[in-house]
Simulated assay, not measured.
Amino acid sequence: MPKPYPKEFREDVVRVARNREPGVTLEQIAADFGVHPITLSKWLAEILHYGSDSLQVHRRLRALLDTLTAHVPPARTTALTRYRTVLDRSAQALPDPAMTATADTPDSQGLGGPAQSHGVAET
């Protein structure tokens, strides 16, 4: 069995994946770090699972999914749609209805500000 990746390495790869430039795919990031794309996807799924009660985790993942959906080939959007469905269901379990409603607003920086697209506030 392969040796697990160190925690710091996993955190670095996920941080880069979350903060990547427009047009950069998860596959490219995985290749840059020598990680299989499915492994990177699993790490992102762990964030959703263990951060399911965090409003900011929901908002950051939604921003990530929006960015990916805008830049992947149409054949890849089905998987992203499924992931978004899981995220939406998870948001329903947030402890406060106001949090559930806010979870639909993407926030790539996790700062709680208005949705932004590549540094420009959306209206």
Results as ranks from 00 to 15, higher is better:
Asp107Cys: 02
Gln116His: 10
Pro6Lys: 01
Ser90Met: 02
His118Gln: 08
Lys42Tyr: 06
Ser108Leu: 13
Thr69Tyr: 14
Glu27Ser: 07
Ala115Trp: 10
Val24Trp: 07
Thr123Pro: 15
Gln109Val: 08
Ser41Phe: 07
Met1Cys: 13
Tyr5Met: 11
Arg62Val: 03
Ser52Trp: 05
Met99Gly: 02
Ser90Gly: 03
Leu87Arg: 07
Asn19Ile: 02
Thr81Glu: 01
Ala75Arg: 11
Pro74Tyr: 11
Phe9Lys: 12
Ala93Ser: 07
Arg84Lys: 02
Thr105Pro: 00
Lys42Trp: 05
Pro6Gln: 06
Leu80Lys: 01
Ser117Tyr: 13
Tyr83Met: 10
Trp43Cys: 09
Leu94Pro: 00
Leu65Arg: 00
Val14Met: 04
Pro22Gly: 14
Pro97Leu: 06
Ser52Thr: 10
Gln92His: 10
Arg76Lys: 15
Leu44His: 02
Val24Tyr: 07
Pro4Ala: 07
Arg82Phe: 12
Ser108Val: 13
Leu44Asn: 04
Thr67Asp: 12
Glu122His: 08
Gln109Cys: 11
Glu27Arg: 09
Ala63Met: 08
Arg84Ile: 00
Pro73Gln: 15
Arg76Gln: 15
Gly119Thr: 06
Leu26Phe: 10
Val35His: 04
Gly34Gln: 03
Arg84Ala: 04
Arg15Ile: 02
Met99Tyr: 08
Met99Ser: 10
Ala93Val: 03
His58Val: 00
Leu40Thr: 00
Leu94Gln: 00
Thr81Asp: 05
Lys42Cys: 04
Gly112Phe: 12
Glu122Pro: 01
Asp66Tyr: 11
Pro73Ala: 15
Leu40Val: 04
Gly112Glu: 01
Asp88His: 10
Asp66Gly: 09
Pro97Glu: 04
Glu8Gln: 12
Ala79Thr: 10
Arg84Pro: 06
Thr102Met: 13
Arg20Met: 05
Thr67Gly: 09
Ala31Gln: 14
Thr67Asn: 10
Leu87Asp: 05
Arg59Phe: 03
Pro106Lys: 05
Ala75Tyr: 08
Leu40Arg: 00
Gly112Tyr: 07
Ile38Trp: 09
Ser54Asn: 15
Asp107Arg: 00
Thr78Val: 13
Gln116Ala: 12
Ile29Leu: 00
Leu65Gln: 05
Gln92Asp: 07
Thr102Ala: 15
Thr69His: 14
Thr25His: 03
Ala45Phe: 02
Thr77Trp: 08
Thr67Ser: 13
Arg18Tyr: 13
Arg18Asn: 14
Asp96Leu: 01
Asp88Gly: 10
Ala101Ser: 02
Leu61Lys: 06
Arg18Thr: 11
Arg20Thr: 07
Pro73Ser: 14
Arg82Val: 05
Val72Ile: 01
Gly112Met: 04
Val24Phe: 09
Lys7Arg: 13
Lys42Glu: 06
Ile29Trp: 03
Lys3Val: 01
Tyr50Gln: 13
Trp43Ser: 08
Asp53His: 11
His58Met: 05
Arg62Tyr: 01
Pro37Gln: 06
Leu44Ser: 02
Gly113Met: 07
Lys7Ala: 12
Gly23Pro: 15
Ser54Arg: 14
His58Pro: 06
Ala103Val: 03
Thr77Ala: 11
Tyr5Glu: 11
Gly34Asp: 00
Thr100Leu: 11
Arg18Leu: 14
Gly112Val: 09
Leu55Gln: 07
Thr67Met: 13
Ile38Met: 12
Ile47Lys: 12
Pro6Ile: 06
His36Glu: 13
Thr67Ala: 12
Trp43Leu: 10
Arg60His: 09
Pro4Val: 04
